[in-house]
Nucleic acid binder design. Sequence first.
RNA 1: GCGAAAGUAGCUCAGCUGGUAGAGCGCGACCUUGCCAAGGUCGAGGUCGCGGGUUCGAACCCCGUCUUUCGCUCCA
Length: 491
Amino acid sequence: MEKKPDTASALKDIISHAKEYGFVFPSSEIYDGLQAVYDYGQNGVELKNNLKNVWYKAMTMLNDNVVGLDAAIFMHPLTWKASGHVDSFNDPMIDNKDSKKRYRADTLLEERAAALEDEGKADEAKALMQAMAKGLDAGDLESVRQLIIDQNIKCPVSGTANWTEVRQFNLMFSTQVGAVSEDASLIYLRPETAQGIFVNFLNVQKTGRMKVPFGIAQIGKAFRNEIVARNFIFRMREFEQMEMQFFVRPGTEMEWYNKWKETRMKFHQAIGLPADSLKFHDHDKLAHYANAAVDIEYKFPFGFKEMEGIHSRTDFDLKAHQELSKKKQQYFDPEINQNYIPYVVETSVGADRLFLAILCNAYTDETTGEGESLKQRVYLNIHPALAPTKVAVLPLVKKDGLAEKAQEITNQLKFAFNTTYDDGGAIGKRYTRQDLIGTPYCVVVDYQTMEDQTVTVRDRNTMSQERISIADLKEKLGYAVSMERIFEKLV
RNA sequence: GCGAAAGUAGCUCAGCUGGUAGAGCGCGACCUUGCCAAGGUCGAGGUCGCGGGUUCGAACCCCGUCUUUCGCUCCA
């Protein structure tokens, strides 16, 4: 009998567990924390690194035509002009005090202008749009609010015109480069990692002698000044993306889009997420850069939410960079003897979201037996290749040389994979400690070990034990905890 | 940003109409034991989220603030 968390309170259990067992801590907690920022603890960092590793290797090792990149977080400010982020990440917002609804101030005015045009007042509409543009360009938000009031625009929900001030929400973080603060030195922390790949497209293509189709994979931090951050590490201000941009010949993008859709879904299942907790969600409204977009959603305790996005980005980005930089972003395709700007299929998964999905899926509150023999335990059912600690070596008792023997085995295994030694407290308690952090195997040194050089290996999920020879440990456990087991499911 | 709830030991919580803090679990040492959170002894750990105010006296009442969760809202 297993109880899987699917209610909102389940998230609380997972957050508590994550903190109590060293996976995720609130940032700068001794100062009361910082909203929507979290730190990964001693076990969290292992799990996250394993996840990043398995993703990166699945991309680069398993695909001959995908290579890696690690671009800087700081980029030339024009990058964000070209990508559209400067324009689309700055929204003037206004709230209605009665309905508590928030609107984009520019949208309200645009709708009003459209209504005026329908009424045949095209001149008035044009004047309104010009006045709005003037106000926005000058950063005069009060004048924008005044326009809304002058036009007597009412909230469709409350029907009142009881508006707050207009406030600018900038989703990009900015900072200064250099000691002197001037306008020219203002730069942004990247709101996505993709642009680092696009601006390096030709560098990689030329120095790596890459032929289209090929991909560039990158893992890195990105930053967004979210207005509302919710759901633990699901939406953070500082987060990590694992992105791969795949450059293809125009016209073939849908073929690759579909191929990557399937490949990525397979990946999530291979690392242990159940098929019925995953689904595709097609975008109805496409972003300015895409001609097809789908999310892979995972069934979090707070519902099916986006974990990964697969977008057909067309040539939007490379073309925009070519126009703004005046540097050609073309590829010469020898097969068809033609120059073109490649189209791009992007796969972009949130490392933190994937981490959270793994944690939610792994958290198991299990009750076995009934009556007197009723047993309850909590364990993390993490894929062995992803588990922070692979093996715990435990002496059944500390005396009679068992502890020394267990230390010796630990020293043999620790070069091959994360191995821990524990002799504190009763054996049952030590099993439980390992269950709680998702260690897949416990090796126990008992009295028989001293006679025939065998140990028992206890499986986390089944709690069953198998006796094997010490000499075979490294090989047998090594394979059981290897990423190979994940990769085998991907080909 | 709005509304609701919450914040006391590492965790889960108790603490009555105000009288300067407790339990269980966990943690550490030692003893005993030895295969699924065993028992015993001893011990560490909290200016009750933070800052004001009321009061002779505040974990408790009032105000502010921070953080978290939930519901709105937002999400190129």
